[in-house]
Amino acid sequence: MEFVIEVEDLRVILGGAVILNGISLRIAKGESYVIIGESGTGKSVLVKCILGLIKPTSGTIKINGRDLNDLTQKEMLVTLLRCGVLFQGGALFDSMNVIDNVTFGLVYGYGKPVKEAYKVAVEKLESVGLSPKIAKVFPAELSGGMRKRVALARAIATNPDIIFFDEPTSGLDPITSAVISELIVQCTKGMGISALSITHDMKSLRHISDVIGLLHQGKKIWEGTKEEIDSTDNPYVRQFVAGATVGPFTHATHAKTR
C-alpha cells in the first residue's frame, strides 16, 4: 500500500511540556484520516509538525515517502505546494479580497500568471458552491460558512495531493456543517485527495472519515474505522463518542495534558 503521510514515534516538547509523546500514524493514498481527542491534547500540533510549521523534538515524518528532516528549504516549499490546508478560522488574508485569497498560492507559490490563476480560482469557487460575484468581496464581509468555503477553495486551488482540515465545521450551524462536510467528501473522494482532519463534530466525523485516531495526553490511544468506532469496547472512545461526563476522561486528566 502506498502511504502519503508516515509519522513514526513523534515527540514534541514545547516550553518544557510534553505535547506529543510517541505518535505514529500512516495515511494511505486517497484515505481520509480523522484525529479526535480532547481540547489541548496536541492534535493541531501534530498537523503543524507534519506541515513543517513546528519542529518536532524527535521522530520522523515522511510526506510522499520523503523524510522532512532530509529536505532543503526549497524542497520543503515544493512539498508544501502539494498540500492544502483549511485552518480552523479559515486564516483568509484580511487585506485581500476573495479572488486574491484563492489565487495567492497559485501566483506567489507556483508563479502562475495572474489571469490564468483567476480562471482556476473562479472554477474552484464554483466547485465549493460560491458565485464568482463575491470575487471582489473582502473576508470580513462574509459569513462564517462562506469564509470556510473560500478557505476550502484556496486549499484545493493548487490541486494538492493531501489536504489538512483543522476543525472544518467548528462555529458553524448544523446545516452549514453538513454542507462543509459534504464538500470535504467531494474534494477528497471526488478528486482522489488524501486528507488528515481534526474534528470534534461526531456527525462530520462519520461523514468524512475512513480511519479515526483518538489522541489522549499526547499519545494515540486508539485507531479504527468509522464502523469500528461504534462497536469498540475502548472506554475512552465510548465516552468521547457519547460525550459522557463520566469515564476515563476526567477534568483532572484533561488539565494534566498541558
Binding site: K48, L51, G52, L53, L77, V78, L80, L81, C83, G84, V85, F87, Q88, G89, A91, L92, F93, D94, S95, F104, G105, Y108, G109, Y110, R154, T158
Partner: peptide, 21 residues
C-alpha cells in the same frame, strides 16, 4: 498590529503552507 493579527489568526502559517516565505 497587522503582522501580530496575522500571527494570532494563523495567516502567517497559511502563508507558509502556500509555499510563501
Amino acid at each position: 498590529a497587522e503582522i501580530g493579527t496575522m500571527k494570532v489568526t494563523e495567516q502567517i502559517d497559511a502563508l507558509k503552507t502556500l509555499a510563501v516565505n
